[in-house]
């Protein structure tokens, strides 16, 4: 479903070149729940940004459903992110002026889905994450755990092919983290492909496959 071939990512600061990813090859099948682990600075988030098309690798190729993404224009990538991917960020990344329902429905509006249908889908997604009663609340009126659940509902409302999550529990307390991970587990059981970056082993165990990265290379790839 998704393949990364020999991905290299380097950053240049003046004359100093830092190689963050040093040739990663990776593949994930439909319906897999993959946890990418590693210590801080290992390159796991950078890798996630490459395969989720939020960034461009310095070299290498990412192939999604047989399509080579290096040949895609920025507009095609944007459409791909909109329709095929869902994102859950560490700091929730909700728009403060939109309600929970509006935050969730926004990508659906962008897909030209009629407003009423989009709102209905958003309502269903919020119900799935247990926030069916908080539709009209602004992010500032929700707890951190609730905001992350809104973020998940936004990511899944349009039924994406792949759900990417970058440290989704990093800013949450233990209880909220457990709730969020149980939602991921349920989504996975429903057939959702999930690729999640985390540094917490406790939550990595929710995945069925564990990929460990260190110093820009995959050092372990096994069933959890």
């Amino acid at each position: 479903m998704i393949q990364a071939k020999d991905i290299v990512k380097s950053f240049t600061d003046g004359t100093v070149v830092t190689h963050v990813l040093k040739g990663i090859t990776f593949a994930a099948d439909q319906g897999e729940f993959v946890a990418i682990m590693g210590r801080s600075g290992a390159g796991k988030s950078t890798f996630l940004y490459q395969i989720s098309l939020l960034d461009e690798p310095t070299s290498g190729e990412i192939v999604i459903d047989g399509k080579e993404t290096s040949r895609m224009s920025e507009r095609e990538k944007m459409r791909f992110r909109l329709s095929e991917f869902g994102y859950v960020f560490q700091d929730y990344a909700l728009l403060p002026e939109l309600t929970a329902l509006e935050n969730t429905a926004l990508p659906l509006y962008m897909q030209n889905i009629p407003r009423a249908i989009a709102n209905e889908k958003a309502r269903e997604a919020l119900n799935r994450v247990g926030l069916g009663e908080r539709l009209s609340n602004l992010p500032s009126q929700l707890s951190g755990g609730e905001q992350q659940r809104v973020s998940i509902s936004r990511a899944i409302a349009h039924a994406p092919a792949i759900l990417f999550a970058d440290e989704p529990t990093a800013n949450l307390d233990k209880e909220s983290s457990g709730v969020v991970m149980n939602i991921f587990k349920e989504l996975h059981e429903g057939g959702q492909t999930i690729i999640m970056v985390t540094h917490e082993e406790e939550y990595a165990r929710y995945a069925e496959r564990l990929v460990k990265i260190d110093d820009g290379r995959i050092i372990a790839d096994a069933k959890a």
Partner: peptide, 16 residues
């Protein structure tokens, strides 16, 4: 700027 980045990230077009 961060929110503009998020909007682009989740697929909202630059034109929008």
């Amino acid at each position: 700027r961060k929110f503009i980045g998020i909007l682009k990230g989740i697929g909202i077009s630059g034109a929008a």
